[in-house]
Each structure stands twice: as C-alpha cells, then as structure tokens.
Amino acid sequence: MQKFSVYLENGFDHDHVTLAVDDQLLADQSDLSTRYQIGLAHKVDITVPDAGPNVLRVGLPDRGRTAEVALDAASGRHIRVNLVGDEPVIDVDPDPPRFA
C-alpha cells in the first residue's frame, strides 16, 4: 500500500469536497473553508494499493468541477489542491508543503 497526503489549500469557501481513487470514495468532506492564516482548508491522508494505475479524482459537487491526477510515489506523495476561480488545480510535490 502507498500513502499519500492531499492538501486542500487555498480558495475553499464552505465547499463540499470528495476524494476518490479509481471510483472508490476515500473522503467526503462538507463545509470546508481555507484558513487563510495558514493557507490550508484540510489535509487528508489516503492509502492506495501498490498496484496501479491509481488516479485521484478531486470533486467539488456544488461547483460542478472535478480534477484528476495520476498518483505516482516517485513523483511525489504530497498532493496540493488549490482553487483558482472555480477550477481545482492539482500539484504534486515530493516534499511536504510548509505552512505558517
């Protein structure tokens, strides 16, 4: 099993967010808002099977938006999601993000 961390960062405003890997729902969070003093709304740790491919789908049902990224531990275990306007933008980082 592989572990990844998903950071729901900036732009969230009382949002309903779902995280699914290959159609398996891993997280379903309502009323998420960014705390702007740290630039983070929520962090979710997920575990996925070693055998891939594993595709993470970030859904915002209320906004009617989704975004996907292929999970690859070699590229990075830290998945950062920011809303730019209504669009979720995903970045993968090998190092954990730093907040303050």
Binding site: Q37, P96, P97
Partner: peptide, 9 residues
C-alpha cells in the same frame, strides 16, 4: 498537523 506547520495565528 505535524511538522508541516511552522506556526499559526
């Protein structure tokens, strides 16, 4: 939150 958070108001 662990070591990712250096400080917080």
């Amino acid at each position: 939150m662990g070591p990712s958070l250096g400080g917080i108001m």
